[in-house]
């Protein structure tokens, strides 16, 4: 049976390109950690006029990186379908659908950063509102990624024979990742402190778990694609 190993490996390696592009974009814009939500409207507007081109390039890299999350999610779903069997693959479908939510939570703020930098003469209050909107998406739109990692963990843990594809520790790692994402849920409540969008729990912990999950999943899925067991099991249809 045709397994398309090369195409699968291209999809899974997209994760590495995504991590690099997103990391470079954040550093280029000077957003590690993100700009403080406590900044005044004037300071926010000055950030975009001062760093206009850097922020524009960062937004472009961020969009490209986010888009590469889709092939990565396809590679994950193909392995989940091996676990779920040929008849129906609900968990693989949920994972794929939620991945789209995760991607949009990165592409939409990127577009908003481009808008903020697009007309430097715009009034500071409007820039501040758009900037708020971008970070509410980028840090605050946690649920799609949360459900995504939970459903991968669930698939690895409760299905019979899942060990052939995902090691059991990986299932528990996904559950742990989900707990690490929770800190980003409350960015709407705080302008300062650890739960604000530039704080230790909402930004630092969520970022470490997000990139950590991507790297660990990249490694696990790559091994699953290359494993000899992949020859005999798996879904017939995509």
């Amino acid at each position: 049976m045709q397994r398309n190993i090369t195409a699968q490996l291209i999809c899974v390696h997209a994760a590495l390109a995504m991590a690099v592009l997103m990391g470079v974009a954040l550093l280029l814009a000077g957003w590690v950690p993100p700009p403080s939500p406590a900044m005044s409207a004037l300071e926010t507007a000055q950030m975009y006029t001062g760093g206009g081109n850097k922020i524009r390039f960062a937004a472009l890299l961020m969009m490209l990186g986010a888009t590469l999350f889709w092939p990565f999610a396809v590679a994950i779903s193909i392995q989940m379908k091996r676990i779920e069997g040929p008849v129906s693959q609900p968990l693989a479908g949920v994972q794929m659908a939620c991945a789209t939510g995760t991607v949009m939570a990165i592409i939409i703020p990127s577009a908003l950063w481009l808008v903020c930098a697009f007309r430097p003469e715009r009034s500071a209050e409007v820039v501040q509102a758009l900037n708020d909107l971008s970070w509410m998406f980028f840090i605050g739109a946690v649920p799609p990624a949360l459900i995504q990692v939970l459903v991968v963990g669930l698939c690895a843990l409760y299905r019979q024979g899942a060990e052939e594809v995902f090691p059991r520790w990986y299932g528990f790692f996904c559950l742990w990742t989900a707990t690490g994402f929770v800190g980003g849920e409350t960015v709407g409540f705080f302008h300062t402190g650890p739960f604000a969008w530039n704080g230790i729990f909402a930004f630092w912990m969520a970022a470490v778990f997000f990139f950590g999950w991507i790297l660990v999943t990249w490694w696990v899925v790559m091994h699953a694609i290359r494993s000899p067991a992949a020859e005999t099991s798996g879904a017939v249809s995509l």
């Binding site: 090691p167 059991r168 520790w169 299932g171 528990f172 790692f173 559950l175 742990w176 707990t179 690490g180």
Partner: peptide, 14 residues
């Protein structure tokens, strides 16, 4: 199971 302790200890770290 042994792998569960990844979640238990990880949660304690958080």
């Amino acid at each position: 199971e042994n792998s569960l302790w990844l979640l238990i200890l990880g949660d304690m770290v958080i």
